[in-house]
Design a protein around this nucleic acid. Structure first.
Lengths: 353, 353
DNA sequence: TTGAAAGCGTTACCAG
DNA sequence: CTGGTAACGCTTTCAA
């Protein structure tokens, strides 16, 4: 018992005392380390005498024992960590995805290693190495601009990964929304308001999302019997500035549009800003709709009509899928497609002309 | 050489082949594992024959060897990981802090484990355990509502940690801005515009930041010889709704204020929203200033005047301090206080009455 | 029901 | 300059 007491004093002493190991604990409890391990891992198959268990648990309390995760990980070949890669945490699209993932993972006893790739392929690759070095057991990629190369490398390595908000031909482990259908829905809505001259600022057309949203737009117009006008479609880059630039060009046309379907909220916001400085009123002179429904949509004036993407759900679903993969369920599951919803606010109205 | 070739074929085969260890590598290179280790760790003191080095490096390429981080960590007693705790990633105040920290840490070869505490003391405590279990080497706490208990426990344990945007008596390892001075600056500015009836929606008064900003406000008024009016100060909780509630009460007063100094941007935004629905024009009828300058300040209409807090810098400085701590520099450093700047936008103007 | 021993994949020390 | 060997702290057979 003196051992225990001494240790306690040591603990009070504080600062950087040697870590308590299973060994110390076993000595204090008067049993073998392996027995301690069994008790601590709640091994239900092996039965342990009640009194022994008691003694061990007491010792744990006494010594404030916490197992060393690296030793355990090395032995078990599991780190209990997941890597989550995002292109830019500051982009309001991602935090909720992270939140959703964190919720599911922490519930399952996994920790989250966060990586901001800044859309840099090298950084991205560094995180693949992390997987190979057993730092993480799986990877969640929320990086839309990802080099396909990375995805292919992961597939080749045969390691567990899931794609968030992005599809890929080589896998079915991804969670997305149907961008085409959602975009089509917004187009339909604008048509329903009475608009005929509807423009579109797209995302980069080398991204899946950019393309799909453009397709949805075209589909909506076609269904309404509205002729496609090339000058009404401008390729942007998902950032504010290109939305502003687009609107400036559109308003110079002989027949300017009465509505704008932007491929994301930032583009819409940029467009709104440009309208303000040009003295064009939204929605009276021009209706604007965005995509993603990031938090600021409801904060700007006029509040922005947008497509709600269930980001929290997306993060959670992706995490669950990855967990499935990790538990070795080899059953090939199909991609997960989540539903969207058009949130109508104040930036859209019937055309006044 | 056959071994190497075989391994290569195995690699092409892909899927879940056994990990390559230092042993395999040593065999292929025809040297002892310890020699490989020396070469790979770039030990400059020990000299290695060029040809040996060459052979080893070739083998690394050949086998695509990546060291096992857990084995290394166990041996070296270092995980190369830092835990970063935030109360809520979705709060726009935090992403940039995370970004700054990530930048510094990844440069230094550390990885970031992200923890969302949701202001839940239990979760917070779970992350302290992570430290004790050697998962992370240090902790960065960006949680303003943190129980003091946690900080004290960390101090007692003698482990490396740093506080972000929050001071604490028991330590000098924190990075903050001078909230009082910044708040005072905004008050001075409003006074300078000609306002005399200036109200304040504070943060929770059990937070350091909440208190300090209130003090700055009072100081500014006192310096201008403006009498303190109790009914002009309302305690909020840093969230939109309480900003709205506050403004409703303030506008019912016999002498409603002509300016509002909000303790953060969310409060200011809530106030702005309430003004809109009450038909009160900003800034003509009421000037509003916020605090933190989160990204949406420049996006709302009218754009919100606010105090810029160097969040990226804050994340970086905190990370650097933690790195210092980790490298065992025992030199007691003083707290880091970063400068702020008032960003004047469209939500503030001279009083019209 | 418990103990002993053999690793997990590294690194660091000591010989040679 | 390089090889052997003993840990790091834990889990998991295999015996007893």
């Amino acid at each position: 018992m003196t051992t225990a007491a001494d240790s306690k004093d040591e603990a009070r002493l504080g600062l950087r005392r040697r870590r308590v190991t299973l060994h110390d604990l076993a000595k204090v409890a008067g049993v073998d380390p392996s027995t301690v391990s069994r008790v601590l891992n709640g091994d239900r198959t092996l039965v342990v005498k009640d009194e022994t268990r008691r003694r061990i648990l007491d010792a744990v309390e006494e010594l404030q024992y916490v197992p060393n995760a690296m030793a355990r990980g090395l032995r078990r070949q599991r780190s209990q960590m997941i890597g989550l890669l995002v292109p830019d945490i500051a982009n309001p699209f991602f935090p909720e995805i992270i939140l959703g993932a964190e919720r599911v993972f922490s519930e399952a006893g996994y920790r989250l290693l966060l990586g901001n790739t800044s859309e840099d392929p090298e950084k991205e690759h560094a995180y693949v190495e992390l997987l190979r070095s057993n730092v993480v057991e799986g990877l969640m990629l929320a990086t839309a601009f990802t080099q396909d190369e990375t995805v292919e490398e992961l597939t080749r390595l045969g390691v567990p990964y899931v794609l968030v908000n992005r599809a890929h031909a080589g896998t079915s482990n991804y969670v997305v929304v149907d961008d085409r259908v959602a975009s089509r829905g917004t187009a339909d809505y604008l048509v329903g308001l009475g608009h005929r001259r509807i423009a579109h600022v797209s995302g980069p057309l080398y991204t899946e999302t950019g393309l799909a949203r453009l397709r949805g737009y075209r589909e909506g117009l076609r269904a309404a019997g509205i002729e496609y006008r090339e000058e009404y479609v401008i390729e942007g880059d998902f950032k504010e500035a290109s939305g502003a630039r687009a609107i400036e060009r559109l308003l110079k046309l002989d027949e300017p549009p009465t509505a704008l379907l932007a491929a994301n909220d930032l583009l819409a916001l940029g467009a709104m800003g440009a309208c303000r400085s040009l003295g064009v009123r939204v929605p009276q002179d021009l209706s604007i709709a965005g995509f993603n429904d990031v938090p600021f949509c409801s904060m700007v004036t006029p509040a922005l009509t947008s497509v709600r993407v269930p980001r929290l759900e997306m993060g959670m679903a992706s995490a669950r899928r990855l967990l499935d993969l990790l538990s070795g369920s080899d059953a090939l599951q199909s991609p997960i497609v989540l539903g969207t919803e058009l949130v109508v606010r104040d930036s859209t109205a019937p055309p006044s002309r």
